Amino acid sequence: MQRVNMIMAESPGLITICLLGYLLSAECTVFLDHENANKILNRPKRYNSGKLEEFVQGNLERECMEEKCSFEEAREVFENTERTTEFWKQYVDGDQCESNPCLNGGSCKDDINSYECWCPFGFEGKNCELDVTCNIKNGRCEQFCKNSADNKVVCSCTEGYRLAENQKSCEPAVPFPCGRVSVSQTSKLTRAETVFPDVDYVNSTEAETILDNITQSTQSFNDFTRVVGGEDAKPGQFPWQVVLNGKVDAFCGGSIVNEKWIVTAAHCVETGVKITVVAGEHNIEETEHTEQKRNVIRIIPHHNYNAAINKYNHDIALLELDEPLVLNSYVTPICIADKEYTNIFLKFGSGYVSGWGRVFHKGRSALVLQYLRVPLVDRATCLRSTKFTIYNNMFCAGFHEGGRDSCQGDSGGPHVTEVEGTSFLTGIISWGEECAMKGKYGIYTKVSRYVNWIKEKTKLT
C-alpha cells in the first residue's frame, strides 16, 4: 500500500490518463441519441435557420407576430419608411378606419389613436360632414345658397324668414311668412316636400332668348283662358290664391305678392273693366268669414305684352289694390325667389296649380277651390304637342294621358313649387288646347323671366 501511494504521488498524470480511459469505455446513459432527441424537440425550422439574422431580410411573422416588435424591426421587413409607417399605425392600436367614419364618399386613412378623412370636392370637416359648395344638395341650405369668396357655403332665406341657429334652416321672422300653410287642420295635408338634388348652379339658368321682337298675326285659340281631375282644397291650404270678379264672377285667378299687390295673367284683364279681388276665398257660393274683398285701382301688364300681336306672350300683369290686405292664416303671400332659384325650383319637376275653373272641358265651374299636382314636361315634348308657338318664356306641365289639367277660369292662378315646406311661385296658368285632352298640356308663363320686374313694381313704400 505504501508503494502504491508513492507511485500516485510521483505520477499524477498517469492516474488522470487511467481515469479518462475508464470513462470513455463506459456506456453513456444520461444523453439520448440524435434521433430520439429530435422526437422530443420537434420544432419547425425557421426561415433563416442556421444563418445569422443580421444578414437576412426581415420576416413579418418572425419579427412582429411571434413577439412584439419595434418600429426598427418592422422597418427591416418593409425596407421602406412609408410602408412601415402605414403598417405601424394599425399594428400599434388597430384600424381606426374600420367603422368607416368618413361621410359623403370620403376616404379614410388610419393613424395612431386617430384617423384622417380625405374629402371629395365640396366637403370638409373631420368626417367630411361639412358642405362647402352650393353645387351639392344646395349646400344643405333649406332655401338659398351662395358661395363666399373663400368658396364656403353661405345660406340665406327669402323675405319674412331668418336663418336658424344651425345656419342652414329657415324659420319665420314674421307672423305670416310667405308660402307657408298655417291653418292647423290643413298642415297635415301639406304636399310632399321637395329635397334639393345635386345641381350645376353655374349652368342652372337656361341660355334662352326671349323672342321679344317676333311679330306674329293673332292666333285663334280655343278655350285658351284655361282644375280638371283635381281635388277639393281645404280652407287655408292655398292662402296665396285669390279669385278675380268682373263682368262675371271667378273669371280668373291670381296670387298675393304682398298686402297691396296681386300677380295674374295679362290676358285676364281689360282696361276700363272694374275688377274686384277676393282673398281668403274657399267656396265661392258661401260666406265663410275668411274672405277679404278689395278693388283694383291700377293694372300693370308687362311692358312687352301686346294682345294685338299675341294674347299669351309675356302673359303676366300686376294688380294694385285700393287697401292693403290683412295677412292671416287664410290670406298669405306666395314666396318669389330670384331668377336663378325660381328656375331651379321649376326644374324640380312638379308643381301645384289651383283655381275655381271648370271641372271638365266646357263644363261647370268649381264651387270649392280645386288643386292638382302636375309634372313638368320637357321642352321637346311640349313643342311636338301643339302647332302653336311655345315661346321661351312659357313652359308645359300636365299629363300625356289627359284627364287632369287646369281649365277655363283658372287662368292667372299660381303654379307653385314647394321647397322644404315653403311654396314659391314658378308659373302662372296661361293657356292650353281644350282641357285635359290626351297628348295636350297646360301652358304656363315662366315666372323666372319676370321676377325682377315683379319685385321692382310691387315694392311697398
Rank of each mutant, 00 (worst) to 15 (best):
V4F: 13
P12V: 13
G13E: 07
I15K: 11
I17V: 10
L19G: 02
S25H: 06
S25P: 11
T29K: 12
D33L: 12
E35T: 12
N36F: 10
N36S: 12
N38Y: 12
N38T: 15
N38M: 09
K39Q: 11
L41H: 08
N42S: 14
Y47T: 09
N48V: 01
G50W: 03
L52V: 05
E53P: 00
Q57I: 01
G58E: 02
E61T: 02
E61I: 04
R62Y: 00
K68A: 05
C69N: 00
S70V: 07
E79L: 04
N80P: 03
T81D: 13
R83P: 06
E86N: 10
Y91G: 05
V92M: 13
C97G: 03
N100F: 11
G105K: 06
G106W: 03
G106Y: 03
D111Q: 12
E116F: 12
F121C: 06
F123M: 06
E124K: 06
E124A: 12
C128P: 03
L130Q: 13
D131H: 12
D131S: 13
F144E: 00
K146N: 09
K146Y: 14
S148V: 10
A149Q: 12
A149C: 06
K152E: 10
T158E: 06
G160T: 11
E165G: 10
N166T: 04
Q167Y: 09
E171I: 12
P172I: 05
P175L: 09
P177T: 03
S187D: 14
L189T: 10
L189K: 12
R191S: 14
E193C: 06
T194I: 13
T194H: 13
D198Y: 08
V199L: 08
Y201F: 14
S217D: 11
R226Y: 12
E231K: 10
D232K: 14
D232M: 15
G236P: 05
F238Y: 04
P239G: 02
Q241Y: 11
V243S: 12
A250Y: 07
A250G: 14
V257I: 05
V257G: 01
E259Y: 04
W261T: 01
I262T: 01
T264Q: 01
T264H: 01
A266W: 00
G272V: 09
I275Q: 03
T276D: 06
V277T: 03
A279R: 00
A279V: 04
H282M: 09
N283V: 10
I284F: 13
I297Y: 05
R298Q: 08
P301G: 05
P301V: 11
N313D: 08
L318T: 01
E320I: 01
E320K: 04
L321P: 00
P333N: 04
I334K: 00
C335S: 01
Y341R: 06
T342N: 03
T342I: 03
N343D: 15
L346P: 02
K347G: 12
S350K: 15
G351M: 03
Y352E: 03
V359N: 12
H361P: 12
G363L: 06
G363D: 09
G363M: 08
L367M: 05
V368I: 13
V368R: 15
Y371S: 11
Y371G: 13
R373A: 09
V377R: 05
A380E: 14
C382G: 02
C382P: 02
T386Q: 09
K387Y: 06
I390N: 11
Y391K: 10
Y391M: 15
N393F: 04
F395Y: 03
H400R: 12
G403A: 15
G409W: 08
P414F: 11
H415I: 04
V419Y: 14
S423P: 02
F424K: 00
I428N: 01
C435A: 04
C435H: 04
A436C: 06
Y444L: 05
K446Q: 06
V447E: 00
S448L: 02
S448D: 11
V451Y: 06
I454T: 01
I454M: 06
I454S: 01
K459Y: 08
